[in-house]
């Protein structure tokens, strides 16, 4: 019903936004709060990866370095300084951005598979540093018992912490949304479509890519920081390559270049993993892998991308008058 209303309404933006916000707010009532927080963090992480993959055309396989690196940094700030947790999270995000500068500087000159491989290599380096630097990172054991301090407020309950962590995720998503809607974002899209032409038009392509890379890393770092706070824990798992892979998978499931699709992918994957683990099913990978294959084969645009595409084509059929206006609204702009 909502769908058909949306289709008729032509512009479903505000309604969808309200729906999304509502879903984010009621999520811990529907499902177990820590799982809800995981979904929120992964949604932001996926959006950050999509910023690079969907809007700049760079497939990074190394974003775990920023998510996990920030998780460690956030944890260390909270553990050793006792500063309020928002400071720790912002510090973690800043650290991720700093880390992304040299990595990005060296890798944005490449594209396609080479870019993916180089970022993967840097992420693995980060992993080994984190593994070996035991005095700081705790090695195998990770950083445990990260406190959530906020001016004496009791946030130990995961239900209340969800609402403390959610603003960071929402701000992060808003920033991502602003970026892709800005002139800067349009340049990124043009670089994705045709880097040579963008260069010919006078845009410093590598610098744009680097900035997109750093911004994406900062947002990933923010997500990783909230995640570490939520779990009271930062571990090697966060900087491992499977974490990068999972984020990319969420983006592909939800729809590349849709920004919000990542959130749907995140909700799907996290919920599925939680469900399978609770049900005692060991081979989670088989199920998520099969779903991934089905989505890639049947819905190339991803779940959200396909839904949006169907809506758009229905809209065209229902209101031919609007068709003329449609092409101006590029497919790359999220609803």
């Amino acid at each position: 019903m909502i769908m058909s209303r949306l289709a008729r309404a032509g512009r479903g933006g505000p309604l969808l936004l309200a729906l999304g916000l509502f879903a984010a707010l009621v999520l811990p009532w529907m499902i177990y709060p820590p799982v809800a927080l995981d979904i929120a963090c992964w949604a932001l992480f996926a959006a950050a990866v999509d910023l690079l993959l969907g809007f700049t055309g760079l497939l990074s396989f190394g974003h775990a370095a920023f998510w996990g690196g920030s998780a460690y940094c956030t944890g260390l700030i909270a553990l050793h300084t006792g500063l309020p947790f928002p400071v720790a999270i912002v510090g973690g995000a800043a650290f991720a951005a700093l880390l992304a500068l040299p990595i990005g500087f060296l890798s944005v000159r490449l594209s396609g598979i080479y870019f993916a491989m180089v970022t993967l290599a840097f992420a693995q380096m980060t992993y080994f540093v984190a593994n070996q630097w035991r005095d700081v990172t705790g090695g195998e054991n990770g950083l445990q018992g990260i406190p959530r301090e906020l001016f004496g407020l009791d946030l130990s309950d995961s239900f209340s912490f969800y609402y403390a962590g959610l603003p960071f995720v929402l701000v992060g998503l808003f920033v991502a949304w602003r970026i892709v809607r800005s002139p800067f974002g349009r340049v990124l899209v043009s670089i994705r479509a045709n880097p040579d032409r963008a260069r010919a038009l006078g845009y410093p392509v590598d610098r744009y890519r680097l900035l997109a890379f750093v911004l994406s890393a900062a947002l990933s770092g923010m997500a990783g920081g909230v995640f570490a706070m939520g779990h009271g824990f930062a571990s090697l798992e966060g900087v491992y390559w499977t974490t990068s892979g999972q984020a990319v998978m969420m983006v592909i499931l939800g729809g590349i270049g849709t920004l919000w699709g990542g959130a749907i992918g995140a909700a799907l994957v996290v919920q599925l993993q939680d469900f399978l683990a609770t049900a005692g099913f060991a081979e989670t990978g088989i199920i998520t892998g099969s779903i991934f294959i089905v989505v890639v084969l049947l819905f190339r645009r991803g779940i959200w991308g396909t839904a949006r595409h169907l809506l758009a084509s229905r809209r065209k059929a229902a209101a031919p008058g609007e068709v003329a206006a449609e092409p101006r609204k590029s497919v790359d702009t999220p609803a």
Partner: peptide
Amino acid sequence: MRVTGWSGCLAA
């Protein structure tokens, strides 16, 4: 639509 959205937010 906006109204629905805001009331939703308020409810939440």
